Computed example of a mutant assay.
Amino acid sequence: MSNTEPGTARWRRSLRWMALGALVMSGASCAALGRTTFKEPDVELREFAITGLGLTGGSVDVVLSVYNPNGYKLDALKMTYRVDVDSIKLGEGALDGRFIVPQKDSSIVRLPIRFTYAGLGAAGRALVMSGTVNYRVRGDFTVGTPLGNFTRPFDRRGRYSSVAGNGK
């Protein structure tokens, strides 16, 4: 009997290695398929909410609406962000708390930011004088999906109007 005939130990080992290789290749192709079918969430600024004021600065919550265009919920594991107002850095940070964005729906996310008056002066004057200010919110987020975890950047620019009370 040859070592490569059915029933031999060598044949069984070869069969196990082929099965393992097929499993690895199918897992890799599922991950690649997941990346091509994953649709980026849409991030939109909703409002700025001042949460504290002091002698040198204060704190503000930047409120975002995150829309999930996918046919499955997104389990947000982490989010980093930077907020600029009229090209001036307002603040940056990381949100390590998890939040869920249901399929084909939106969730509200609050990003806490501490700021100094020196860094916010020109943008604050523009908001007081005209009631509107340009903004940019950027960063990245990591979400868990049925297709695996994805870390993707986001970058949203717009004009915030305190008169209208929203970021459109």
Rank of each mutant, 00 (worst) to 15 (best):
L95F: 02
Y67C: 03
T56L: 08
A126M: 12
L55Q: 06
P112V: 12
L53H: 06
S107K: 02
S59N: 08
A126Y: 04
E40K: 11
R35T: 09
S59V: 01
Y81R: 06
D105G: 01
L127M: 14
D86H: 14
K78D: 09
I100G: 00
R125Q: 14
A123P: 01
E92N: 15
K73E: 12
Y67K: 10
T116N: 03
G71D: 15
T56M: 07
V60W: 03
V83D: 06
T80I: 14
L77G: 02
E47Y: 08
V66K: 00
D75H: 13
P69Y: 03
G34H: 11
L111Q: 01
I50L: 15
S107F: 00
V85Q: 09
R46E: 15
L77F: 03
S106F: 03
G58K: 08
L77S: 09
D84R: 10
G58T: 10
F38P: 14
G57L: 07
N70I: 07
R35A: 15
G71C: 08
T56K: 11
L64C: 08
Y81M: 07
D96A: 13
A123T: 01
V66Y: 01
A49L: 10
L95R: 09
S59Q: 08
D61W: 03
T56Y: 07
K39V: 13
G52W: 07
A76L: 03
G124Q: 05
R82L: 07
P41H: 05
V83E: 10
G54K: 09
A94L: 08
R125G: 10
P41S: 11
K78T: 06
G91D: 05
L33W: 13
I108Y: 04
S65F: 02
V66A: 01
G97Y: 06
D86R: 14
K89C: 12
Y72G: 03
F99W: 00
R110L: 07
D61F: 07
A49W: 02
D105F: 02
I100T: 09
L53E: 09
K104M: 10
E44L: 04
T80N: 15
Y81Q: 06
I88A: 13
R35K: 13
G119M: 02
G97W: 06
K89Q: 14
L111I: 00
I88V: 12
D75M: 11
S65Y: 01
F38I: 10
Y72E: 07
M79T: 15
E92H: 13
G124T: 04
S107G: 00
F115G: 06
A94N: 05
R125E: 15
F99V: 02
L127I: 12
L45S: 02
F48T: 03
G124C: 00
T56R: 10
Y72D: 04
N68H: 02
R114T: 13
A122T: 11
R82T: 11
A94E: 11
E47P: 04
L45Y: 00
S87G: 07
Y81N: 07
